[in-house]
């Protein structure tokens, strides 16, 4: 019944660097159905953002390609809206104007002025930001900025919503609120969503499937885990279920075992490439622990 909506086939991504080209992704294959919520998880620097950027069209895959609704995508477009890690709001515009810029560009000639206004306000309500329409980004908190970023992306009426660690910089409580909002919105609108995250609990709570990536260089899809819990989920109830804990355990096992294995391989045959990898790659274990530890205590 369900058709393939978004498909990545044999995606390779090479970056030119001063020491020759650096292969970030190798042979990434993914099939995503309409309305699905997919998380991408993996160690820092493995290439999660790169996958999202390839889908968004901001990077051109060196080999392979992305197909959305049967058509190859090569350039960015609003049907693949992106929520950026650091909100990326225009600091000189108010929250309303930020969303307005997107709406005006996309619905020019399709919506009247008052329809646009309504549409902007509607999307701000979806993220519970209707009270701060006239505030500029530097006047609102990090969580609120991220909400506006989501509203802007939603207002584009995207077929696929791409979220790159949207809650990475937020505290645990704000993060939980925003996760609930995202679940609500997905239940309402049924968008296809792809989210990059560092957070195991977040991945399990939100996703239908979790894509676990191997470490770079030449990262690829390691395992894909189905989360068989009915949507929308309640974080308290779900956290007691065995399925939830099983999934969580699976992801953690993948991340820590994979990491150890890959590190050995690196020292054996890929020592040259190691020098090319950026600094974020050097201490993934530490980085991962940092983002995980407080969360584990909460859960």
């Amino acid at each position: 019944m369900e058709k393939i909506h978004l498909e990545l086939t044999g995606v390779n991504m090479d970056f030119p660097t001063p020491n020759g080209s650096f292969r970030a992704l190798e042979n990434v294959n993914l099939k995503i159905q309409k309305g699905e919520f997919v998380s991408i998880i993996g160690h820092s620097g493995c290439g999660k953002s790169t996958v999202l950027n390839v889908i968004a069209g901001l990077y051109q895959a060196t080999a392979g390609g992305v197909i959305l609704n049967g058509k190859e995508v090569t350039v960015p477009g609003p049907e693949r809206a992106m929520v950026f890690q650091n909100h990326s709001l225009l600091p000189w515009l108010t929250a309303y104007e930020n969303v307005e810029l997107a709406v005006k560009t996309i619905f020019k000639g399709k919506k009247s002025k008052s329809e646009m206004r309504e549409w902007i306000e509607h999307n701000m309500q979806l993220v519970h930001m209707e009270h701060a329409l006239d505030k500029r980004p530097d006047e609102i908190s990090g969580g609120m900025k991220q909400r506006v970023g989501i509203a802007r992306a939603l207002a584009m009426e995207p077929e696929v919503l791409l979220l790159d660690e949207p809650f990475g910089a937020l505290d645990a409580l704000t993060r939980a609120h925003l996760q609930d909002s995202v679940m609500e919105i997905q239940a309402d609108l049924g968008n296809t969503m792809m989210m990059v995250t560092h957070d195991v609990d977040e991945a399990v709570l939100l996703s239908d499937r979790i894509v676990m990536m191997t470490n770079g260089p030449a990262a690829t899809v390691g395992e894909i885990l189905e989360v068989n819990l009915p949507q929308p989920r309640d974080r308290i109830k779900v956290s007691e279920s065995t399925q939830y804990n099983h999934c969580r355990h699976e992801v953690l096992r993948f991340l820590y075992e994979r990491h150890g294995k890959k590190a050995e391989e690196l020292t054996e045959d890929e020592t040259i490439d190691e020098t090319v990898v950026d600094s974020s790659e050097k201490s993934p274990v530490v980085d991962f622990k940092e983002s995980q530890q407080p969360k584990n205590k909460v859960a």
Binding site: A56, L58, P76, P78, F84, L90, I106
Partner: peptide, 8 residues
Amino acid sequence: NVSHVLRL
């Protein structure tokens, strides 16, 4: 990137 995604 925002500008690209919006195809301004």
